[in-house]
Design a binder for these strands. Sequence first.
DNA 1: GCCGTTTTCGGCCCGACTGTTTTCAGTCG
Length: 572
Amino acid sequence: MTLQNTEIADRFEELADLLEIEGANPFRVRAYRNAAQLVRGQTRAMADRIEAGEDLTELPGIGDDLADKIAEMVAKGDLELLQEVRGRTPPALVEIMHLKGLGPKRVKALHEALDVDSLEDLRQAAEAGRIRELEGFGEKTEASILRHIEQRQGEEKRTGLARAEALAAPLVEALGAVEGVEQVEIAGSYRRCKETVGDIDILVRAAADSPVMQAFVGFEAVAEVVSQGDTRSTVILRSGLQVDLRRVDTAAFGAALVYFTGSRAHNIAIRRIANGKGYKINEYGVFEDDERIAGETEAGVYGTIDLAWIPPELRENRGEVDAAREGRLPELVTLDDIRGDLHCHTDATDGRHGLAEMAEAAAGRGYDYLAITDHSRRVSMANGLDPERLARQIDAIDALNDELDGITLLKGIEVDILEDGSLDLPDAILERLDLRVCAVHYGQDRSREQQTTRILKAMDNPLFNILAHPTGRLLNKRGPYPLDLQAVLEGAAERGCFVELNANPNRLDLDDDGCMQARELGLKVPVSTDAHQAGHLDFMRFGINQARRGWLEAADVLNTLSLKDLVSALAR
DNA sequence: GCCGTTTTCGGCCCGACTGTTTTCAGTCG
């Protein structure tokens, strides 16, 4: 049993968390965290690299020890050190440490002084008022712990699309290779490209005598078989993700794909139309009386009720059915429409690669331009740029542009919007840039009014071009800060500035609703990766997924413009 | 635990904020 990259990364992360609670050398902890991040970001499986005889220590941050540990996980599917650490430090403490306001030191104190080994222990200790008695804790901390436990329990556990993709890909590949399988498609919210998915629904087109079900439940990443039948099985992967597999005949494949892609609201809407025409739609086809009149393809199913085929990203019953009937479905933006990226970092701040490497990576993706937007000084932890360092970077970009062919680096900054709505760097240096991406990183706990006012005030500065990750949310980690997004979008439209769709799969901020709001205002949306290393430029596709869910066409996306048109669009 | 060559040890991003204190530890980003 070998582990996938995601699973290797998960184990390194858990190890880092547990060691941190134990008070291990913080740099050792960081080494494990770095390794987790690195492995998670690799497109090729560690197992493949090892099989090919590659030297893993050539990866940055991987030395002999970590290479051995990766090899151990690939070979044995397990990591002895992690088992050892779990034996002496309860794994549930990791969950506790992820509560806001609790870090390794406090978790250790809670564990040692109050025997807290689980969230439930913690809740009881807080309710009994025992936490406030501890040194370094007080009433406010105790109340905040209780509040965060409750918030957490209300949350539905969903998996980010990027992670779901990484977990599903090997399964899809394996199923495709099974005898008798003609086609494999992932349906459900995954196919609709929702930012997170609850589970994964896979459809295979195969004859009844295909051994696909046995292959599915026997897949190496399966931890538990929940149910197994001839046409449907459900398993839980080791990662905790639930996967349903359905086997469908060719004649019903399109109907099943529509049915299992959903959304539920979309399906109800199209079934209602079918009823009006005297038809019945189910997962086996479109039926007139008992005769199947469509079912093999999706287009055929939609066609029977006089609808154009609807892209899965739109199937949310948000107007797509009417649009399909009236022939005014949007021509959704695609990755090929993108001409450049307007937000990325370099090793001058918290990125991994230098200007030249980023330029090369962008050129390799066929882009015409890439904006370099490192952090400003306020973000000290990322080694943000002060005016002097930014001036040096400006000169370096000018020099590099003279050498580059086919790609232009734009001089930019991700400048912090300070608490009072001013920008973190003086206008004199900001004026020398091609564009300014402006962001809130600190002071996210302001009221809705304060936060909205702060951002609108920042936009009053004519040097303000693009608001980065507008709500600050981190999927599954942190909700959006309170903000009147409609007012911010209107403010941007009035002033000639823009609001970003951050394509990082943990952000995807704007969300799909925000994109729709922007589109109604005629406000072009920049889709930007916020890349912190060259490979992150590939996050673009997650941003495009989200933009498509928000009904955006190429003309609605700022970075589909040519360099010349982009420059005029940015001018205020 | 990784890295580098003024290396085989000693450094590795650090300032703001919160809640706890009454000068600061812990957490966050």
